[in-house]
Design a protein around this nucleic acid. Structure first.
Lengths: 230, 230
DNA sequence: CTCCTTTGTTGAACCAGGTTCAACGCGAGT
DNA sequence: ACTCGCGTTGAACCTGGTTCAACAAAGGAG
């Protein structure tokens, strides 16, 4: 028997925090909140129960931190440069969104399905994340003052994006480009009516993303979107 | 001191179940899952802790039952008659959906924000509810065999509807009719591309819900929907 | 090199809250 | 009136989150 580890490894604060966050995100992604016990976390991280309380206030706070971590990563990831003109920026952001979701599938699903019951703090984080994305999109469209109709339209669209993304991760039977095309068409429809509801908005709607020619199976590879039809 | 209640009231099984479900839905709507203790439920229902275990397996099972109850009510409520032709059925169903959400705001929000962590059972109920609605909608469109593109489109749309509904309940600064118009326009956009992706689908898309005239602030009260502009 | 301070870390005790179970009493049937 | 069934109880139980005083590995001072 080796007794080389009388006490566990000694990390720096940041290292420990990062390790715990990563681990927690993985654990909470694969099991429900109260399926994961403090002991599970502690033993998986090879630390004692008490240490978790040193870094985070408790189990709840730790969970919140994990969710916030994932949310932050998502927001950063989908931040598109202002250089890109608007017709394509939405598509680029959407692509980045799907990229993140595909790469960190478990984390993404955990984030979307998150919430301890309807825990206000967790709900606030998820909702704040959506709001940040919506606000950023509105900024990109030149809308800075409160525009209820446009906010509602984008908020609804975010809902559609999240749903489509979860759908895509579950059973991948629709090409990703197809989903993106659909979502962009849906966004256009939403924005048309939003503009009708608020004609004074400083926002000019471009041409529809694609004329409904409905002749070919997949959409033509025009307008700079790469194909990936199976 | 009255001693008129040596033991609590004696209900029939169904009465008790109904009472507990109603109460639980209310409690879980206003507080988080593990903010609500068994004692809270028991004292609020004026019963002992043990009785809850007699009717439901435990706290978790009770929560699941509450969520299932709300989900069932929502599905029943939004079930539209097959008599209504399709251009209007979507609008009717959407109106019924908003009606339910407005009337049972707390229950609706609880249902949407539900989920104990990512509890698989709860998630399954919510997801099954969405699937039922999607399947019903597909049936109404004459699509019975698996049509991935259309399923994805409708699933995404449900996401948009839920998001818009929550948005509407939170800050009601957009007329409900406006939201409905937006959502229908978004649905149209989604379906156009879905049809492109799957041209063989036995589904003919009608004319767009409303030409983008973009002249008036609110949409005209045409097409048989009642107004409710504040 | 040794002591001392700092701070990451521990383990056991503590406690809240979900769960179990044997017994109790009100109502219906005889 | 008697008793059987079942809705109901309350206290004991136990898992699991929380607290806290003490311990040990780095880093610096003498």
């Amino acid at each position: 028997m080796r007794v080389t580890e009388p006490h566990r490894a000694r990390f720096s604060v940041d290292e420990r925090r990062a390790q715990l966050l990563e681990l927690g995100l993985r654990l909470f992604a694969e099991r429900a909140y109260d399926e994961v016990s403090i002991d599970d976390i502690a033993s998986a991280a090879n630390i004692s129960k008490g240490l978790l309380y040193h870094y985070y206030g408790g189990k709840r706070a730790f969970y919140v931190a994990c969710v916030a971590h994932a949310a932050e990563a998502l927001v950063e990831r989908t931040h598109m440069s202002d250089e890109i003109p608007e017709p394509d920026r939405a598509r680029a952001g959407l692509d980045a969104y799907f990229d993140y979701a595909e790469e960190h599938a478990t984390a993404y699903v955990a984030l979307m399905r998150s919430g301890i019951g309807n825990d206000p703090e967790v709900a606030a984080i998820v909702e704040a994340t959506r709001t940040r994305i919506v606000r950023r999109a509105l900024d990109g469209m030149g809308i800075t003052t409160p525009r209820p109709a446009f906010r509602a339209a984008l908020r609804a669209w975010i809902g559609a994006v999240e749903a489509a993304c979860l759908e895509h991760l579950e059973h991948r039977d629709v090409a990703r480009v197809g989903l993106v095309d659909m979502l962009l068409a849906g966004l256009y429809g939403l924005l048309v009516v939003a503009k009708q509801l608020d004609p004074d908005a400083p926002f000019a709607l471009g041409p529809p993303p694609q004329p409904p020619t409905q002749t070919e199976t997949a959409s033509p590879p025009s307008r700079g979107s790469r194909r990936r039809q199976p």
